[in-house]
Nucleic acid binder design. Structure first.
Lengths: 216, 216
DNA sequence: ATGTCTTTGTGAACGCGTGCACAAAGATGG
DNA sequence: CCATCTTTGTGCACGCGTTCACAAAGACAT
């Protein structure tokens, strides 16, 4: 029976082994003392807890470059997602095959959602259309929305929205890049403002050490 | 002179006003007691600190659907980024206009980087090509890489890499969606495993309450 | 069986970030 | 010029998450 110890996993993931064990204990995963965790059982338990064992039908609305990229993205299928439909407002797109499936027109949005029991929608439309699409998705029964459009969506309680801003990560890189450059010529010529003391190791968290508040 | 108080800003951003003031104090931004912060000056200071006032030339390598989507993305320009070049390995793509600029061939990668003084590169290639592209970017002088390819890149010290996984956000939504469904029929039939005690309000942080360790 | 050795699961301590609360600073009005 | 009022900047305390450290549990050898 192939097993892994928390120590091995922690080293691989770059985290503390105690934290890892504590996390696993929250999930109810049971290892065997003196041996470690049964790999297969552990993978199954974590997958189940994360919802990877379920089949989540999703619709992608807005089949531009980004929508097409998402439709073709291989990572979805392996994580339990199934693209149930591609929807676009452009009649010229209707019927065109993208990622091996025909694009459908926005008119059929409600029917598609309901027929496929879709509860997760992806919005990849231009900013102007996003809120309207969002409202229709929600009205049709979607309760989770992944928003790639550069707008803040308003939704009723009980609906989750996550906004993906493709430029934020780039901005974080630029932030650190700037700091690198500043370290070489140590002084901050501009106006005597001292360089703020921010944690040096910015490879830790997913969002680094960027302040909470940014200008829009 | 238009001003804002930390209280107003905090309410708008949904954070604590003391934290906001403390953050600002780290940036060396000075407000005026009894008045607040001069909006224009504050915006400038924050922009400067985040590197938004600089002009960052970036190259996008891999002009598939995603690369094209990124090239067309409007959010870059407004945040201080300038797409200096689009690069693709496919000779058939060379010269084709995407987002108003001609795609260039990978052969010229080194020259493009050096001519434009590029220090930030975006990789939107298939997984198989990513590491090789990465190595060439780094060798040519790039010190920050935004990786959209589903691979973990290996880079020398001093080079920053940020990986964007388009399915992670979707997975987080599915995780909460699953929980929503589970709350209706309260019991966890499966195997007597108790539902782990995780923070209920998952709309706070950018990465919600998903455990640190996930299967690849 | 009994002892040793490995690794888990977790109570307790530590450290850090958040939020409270207030003194200091400056505006504004009399 | 003084009093009052608003809002900043920050010391301090609290709470939470991470890490330490160890007892308990089980495997494995003798």
């Amino acid at each position: 029976m192939p097993t892994v110890s928390s120590e091995e996993l922690a080293a691989a993931a770059g985290v503390n082994s105690a934290k890892l064990r504590k996390d696993f204990s929250y999930l109810g995963s049971y290892g065997t003392r003196g041996v470690g965790y049964d790999v297969e059982y552990l993978v199954y338990q974590i997958s189940r807890e994360l919802g990877l064992t379920q089949d989540w039908p999703v619709v992608i609305v807005g089949i531009g470059n980004l929508g097409a990229a998402l439709a073709n993205y291989g990572g979805f299928a392996s994580r339990g997602f199934r693209v149930a439909a591609l929807i676009d407002a452009d009649p010229a797109m209707a019927g065109k095959p993208v990622a091996g499936m025909p694009v459908q027109h926005t008119d059929d949005l409600e029917r598609i959602i309901s027929d496929n029991g879709v509860s997760i929608g992806v919005i990849a439309t231009p900013a102007g259309a996003a809120q309207q699409v969002c409202d229709r998705l929600v009205a049709a029964g979607v309760t989770s929305i992944l928003n790639f459009a550069p707008t803040v969506l308003t939704v009723p309680d009980g609906v989750d929205v996550r906004k993906v801003d493709l430029s934020i990560e780039l901005q974080i890189l630029a932030f650190h890049e700037q700091r690198k450059a500043g370290e070489e010529s140590a002084a901050d010529a501009a106006d005597g403002t001292a360089t703020p003391a921010v944690a040096k190791d910015h490879r830790k968290g997913p969002d680094g050490d960027v302040p909470a508040v940014m200008p829009a």
